[in-house]
């Protein structure tokens, strides 16, 4: 197990390295930030542009720029934004908690809702409860989330005026973005839990547990759930990555002051330092969660732990 984890840890570092390298390189193919910055300044000479580039360090060869980025990464100094010159670490420091809180809130609620529903569906397979859960989850799956977001804003913020339409300000502001992202996730997860549970319930040790006289809740939530947790945890880990990707759209719609909004603006402005930093942080979050998943495997399953 220790060897396995060390292995995974080294893989994680390698993955982050490759991601930053690819991102830094690819950003620079998108165009010249100096042109963007110079827009609206009337007539701009080639000399002016060159001066802007020099000021931003863009006249250096790519590898040197990348090395600078790496050095900054280890000292948590990501440079300054091309727009306004705010230190990038300061921007990230403000946006990261907003995104992480939203993402974890969504994951937590989705898992907490989908596990009991999925189990209920599995246990009553073919009966009305199962059908109802499946149909509702199919409906949930069929909404595009940006559309759902707009409809929610129309209903709860504009018509009813119950909830703030945008921004992050207290518990109420979490409800709509979390619900929008959570509904599709939950719809998928209910089906996933149902399938995993159905398979586990076929196992003979479940029959053995029942034959001991254990109550149905102990059989389901102790004996069965822990056995089907491995595929579930794997999927939840992967899902977290998808969630962070999808968050950009939702953050835009609700004007959420998170990494997604930051990244969106940075792309528009070709603000390399911000974009590099945001993507690096996001990829670290994703691989970090997957590393966590590997550790959880060992906690759940002794066959992995004692390997």
């Amino acid at each position: 197990m220790a060897r396995f984890l060390i292995n995974r840890f080294l893989q994680t570092i390698f993955v982050i390295f490759v991601v930053t390298l690819v991102v830094s390189f690819a950003i620079r193919l998108t165009g010249d930030p100096a042109l963007m910055l110079a827009q609206g300044a009337g007539s701009v000479s080639e000399d002016d542009l060159a001066r802007i580039r020099e000021g931003l360090g863009l006249n250096q060869p790519f590898l040197i720029q990348y090395a600078d980025f790496l050095r900054g990464f280890f000292t948590l100094d990501f440079g300054r934004s091309f727009l306004g010159g705010t230190p990038v670490s300061q921007l990230i420091g403000a946006a990261l908690p907003a995104t992480v809180m939203l993402a974890f809130a969504v994951m937590f609620v989705s898992i907490a809702v989908s596990i009991p529903l999925g189990i209920k569906a599995a246990v009553s397979r073919g009966k009305w409860a199962d059908q109802a859960i499946r149909i509702v989850s199919l409906i949930g799956l069929s909404f595009p989330n940006f559309w759902l977001a707009i409809m929610l804003v129309l209903l709860f913020s504009i018509t009813l005026q119950w909830l703030p339409p945008s921004g992050m300000d207290g518990f109420a502001s979490f409800l709509m973005p979390a619900f929008t992202m959570g509904i599709i996730l939950t719809a998928t997860n209910v089906r996933l839990v149902r399938t995993a549970m159905l398979e586990t319930l076929q196992s003979q040790y479940i029959m053995v547990a029942r034959a001991k006289g254990l109550s149905e809740n102990v059989v389901l939530y102790k004996h069965a759930l822990r056995n089907c947790a491995i595929p579930l945890v794997t999927y939840f880990g992967l899902q977290f990555g998808g969630l962070l990707g999808g968050i950009v759209v939702i953050e835009r719609v609700f004007n959420w002051p998170g990494l997604g909004t930051l990244a969106f603006d940075a792309v528009g402005a070709r603000d390399y330092p911000v974009l590099q930093a945001v993507i690096t942080i996001l990829s670290m979050l994703i691989v970090g969660v997957n590393l966590l998943v590997d550790i959880v495997y060992g906690l759940i399953d002794p066959r992995i732990r004692t390997e």
């Binding site: 196992s203 003979q204 001991k212 006289g213 254990l214 002794p302 066959r303």
Partner: peptide
């Protein structure tokens, strides 16, 4: 039945490899 199962009437199954829950001691 739950009070009788495992107490008064116990059962052993066919596949010993699959009768024990793999995640508990």
């Amino acid at each position: 039945m739950r009070a009788i199962r495992g107490k008064d009437i116990a059962m052993i199954f066919q596949e010993p490899m699959m009768s024990l829950n793999p995640v508990f001691t």
